[in-house]
């Protein structure tokens, strides 16, 4: 049952990603990306990580992609304007090279038996010992990873201040 669901969601993810990359219309691409986020959330649920699933939908599908769509709508990007300019040809070349490198890396890791190695500390039993997925994430995040967590919030704060400064018309 679980394996079947995995194949269904995985298949949808692959198809939607293909649609995302090959789509000519930016809005359609954005919608395919939303589908990808949903399927990834479903995969998280299959792994018993329901907190991550909810966060995935909330943050990526519910906030980030809405802002993407918002910008696409504001700019009124038409499909024709995006095709075959010389600058895009340059980007296409690097895109192909980089994605080949990435594919090679993923293949190396999968072939290298990385996933067959020793099991990590957080088995389903340990997680249920915390009282659930949400509690386990919180416990690890606010003890072992407290410093990176605080560092991330500092970086986000910097980004926020940067955005405010950039949009201010005149600096006093």
């Amino acid at each position: 049952m679980e394996l079947l669901l995995f194949y269904i969601f995985g298949g949808v993810a692959v198809l939607a990603s293909l649609g995302l990359v090959t789509g000519k219309n930016p809005v359609h691409s954005a919608l395919f990306m939303v589908v990808v986020f949903f399927v990834i959330a479903a995969l998280f649920v299959l792994l018993g990580a329901e907190f991550l699933a909810a966060a995935q939908i909330l943050v990526y599908a519910g906030a980030i992609m809405v802002l993407f769509l918002f910008v696409i709508m504001l700019l009124r990007l038409q499909p024709e304007e995006l095709r075959n300019t010389s600058r895009h040809a340059f980007q296409k070349f690097f895109g192909i090279v980089l994605s080949l490198v990435l594919m090679a890396q993923i293949a190396l890791i999968v072939r290298g038996g990385f996933f067959k190695g020793a099991k990590g500390n957080y088995t389903p039993e340990v997680v249920s010992g915390f009282g659930g997925n949400t509690e386990a994430v919180a416990a690890v995040l606010f003890t072992d990873y407290l410093f990176p967590f605080e560092l991330t919030s500092l970086i986000l704060l910097m980004a926020m201040v940067g955005a405010v400064v950039l949009t201010k018309k005149e600096l006093k």
Partner: peptide
Amino acid sequence: DVNIGILYIFAVSSIGVYGIVLAGW
């Protein structure tokens, strides 16, 4: 009774905006 009930509601309702944005666009 999912153990992330509130988050689920919040996540689902955050998607509701798509219908409106896409209808407008």
